[in-house]
Design a binder for these strands. Structure first.
Lengths: 282, 282
DNA sequence: TGTCTATCTGGTAAATTTTACCAAATGAAG
DNA sequence: CTTCATTTGGTAAAATTTACCAGATAGACA
């Protein structure tokens, strides 16, 4: 499935969408029920959007979804159930939109500008002609909404996003090639990335991006890619060791015609403590 | 006006409320209109609560209000107008509840646990017998609400809080003697203070707490009180000077029978830049 | 089996920052 | 003019960060 998209600078280019979703009758029913009765289950006027970053082998990507009926891209998002906490809602929403589970999701900011949703981005008349959408007008979904922003980071090679009944598709984009997003979602991504980079210095969230056993070069690359800056190849890993955050193993990895590097693991006790209390890696 | 309150450890003690507010007929009308028609002006399901810290002369206080009809204390809070940004709403709400203006308000977290408002804290039957409250039941105010937390810091000696038509009273409390608050407001205060202390290292928000011209001892005391820890009396001010954040003046202040200290001012350019970009004071 | 190459890693010197704290300067009171 | 509490210039020691050299190493290849 090929889709034309434009990036932040207005340039149009083609995207290959692997996870295109073909709606069925069942999903139309589900959608209509959501539009008509959703406000019994969900709290109106508040949504929750997640900026999910994916790292693998020097690349930083972001999970973007395309919602049914919307001509454009946005962050995977949804509404909060009346019975769940915000953190629970974030986890459920990501799971529903993308089938990704087990993320370490972090609330970072709530967005509430009155013009954050440009209604000109939405063609309600056109939408209502689509199956499942005919009762959209005057529904609870059409009122002003404030959105709570969450972010997470994961290894994108390990998770294949799968769209659900609300999403047409869902895929990883190179952070540099992210298309222009609807509403205020460009700003959400930019502020999420800023927060991620700050928190990286205090919380060892990079642990989520590496296999159980990894080399110093690998963890060094994670930090360089996420922060988008160079870190001294000797001093940075030494600091991690000095802080006791990682432990050297008595194993090596075969990397072809070069010296085999030692493997390391996170020191689980220190790692968990640092996730809670923070630590200074700067 | 004396009020009995209990602190976080359950101990009951007496509080002298200077700013007690005597409701008039007008305010009852205003209140009823707010209950019946408020959701036309305000976004339902979302409130905004402000933890306003006040510093003066080695003391740290917090602004607590008592809302009409509620038997207990809470943070000054309110609802967001459909036409304003969150930051604007925060400013307006503080102004309405306490008559304080010009604060540097900072969003820090959104609270949304389904049980954050303990309904047992509210006696609706009793409330509805109070003037202005009779249409409360089934109103937009009785549905589940998520709250956006803001904090600010100011010099409490310069501002006399004044309650409005929603508040019965409004006063500064010593942070150590803060009474137990309704709903999840204890947690809000604790997380606001934690954020304030963290941000203090990166943003020179203490500038809001000092007169135009101040001594090194004064700015040193501000930081020690806010952080609740000791900072070296020589090295800390020296760092501020080294960073160029403050400038020495050619004036001294008379402090009785001791050596007269020099006065300093904030370097406005550096100060504003640091407020925006951050700076490391740790 | 020895050489080559690219990478990994122990180590260390230099630069910078932080910490600790001495002692002189000061201004008014007695 | 002495006394006292406080302010402030200065500096030595400790700790941390930065820069980077050079030896170790594993497989490829002759």
């Amino acid at each position: 499935m090929k889709i034309h998209a434009k990036n932040l600078f207005g340039k149009i280019y083609q995207i290959d969408f692997l996870n295109y979703f073909y709606p069925t009758m069942d999903t139309h029913k589900e959608l209509e029920d959501f539009i008509v009765n959703g406000s019994k289950t969900y709290i109106p006027h508040i949504s929750l959007d997640c900026a999910i970053f994916g790292y693998h082998d020097h690349q930083l990507k972001i999970l973007i979804s395309m919602l049914k009926g919307l001509d454009g891209f946005c962050l995977p998002g949804g509404y909060i159930k009346r019975t769940e906490t915000l953190d629970e809602a974030a986890g459920r929403i990501v799971k529903e939109r993308s089938a990704i589970t087990g993320l370490y999701l972090q609330q970072y900011k709530t967005f509430g500008d009155p013009d954050r949703v440009k209604w000109s981005d939405l063609d309600t008349e056109k939408l209502m002609k689509l199956p499942g959408f005919k009762k959209l007008k005057n529904s609870w979904l059409m009122d002003q909404t404030i959105s709570i922003g969450y972010y997470a980071i994961t290894d994108f090679s390990l998770v294949k996003p799968q769209p659900d009944f609300m999403s047409v598709s869902c895929a990883w984009f190179d952070i540099e090639k992210m298309p222009d997003l609807l509403f205020d979602h460009n700003q959400m991504v930019s502020e999420a990335l800023q927060t991620l980079r700050l928190q990286l210095y205090y919380y060892p969230i990079a642990g989520k991006l590496l296999p159980k056993k990894f080399t110093l070069t690998e963890i060094h690359a994670v930090y360089e890619t996420l922060l988008n800056k160079r870190l001294d190849i000797r001093n940075f890993p030494k600091k991690l060791i000095f802080l006791g955050l990682i432990n050297k193993l008595n194993e090596k990895r075969n990397i072809g015609p070069h010296r085999a590097p030692f493997l390391y693991t996170f020191n689980n006790r220190k790692y968990k403590k640092a996730l809670e209390l923070g630590i200074d890696l700067s």
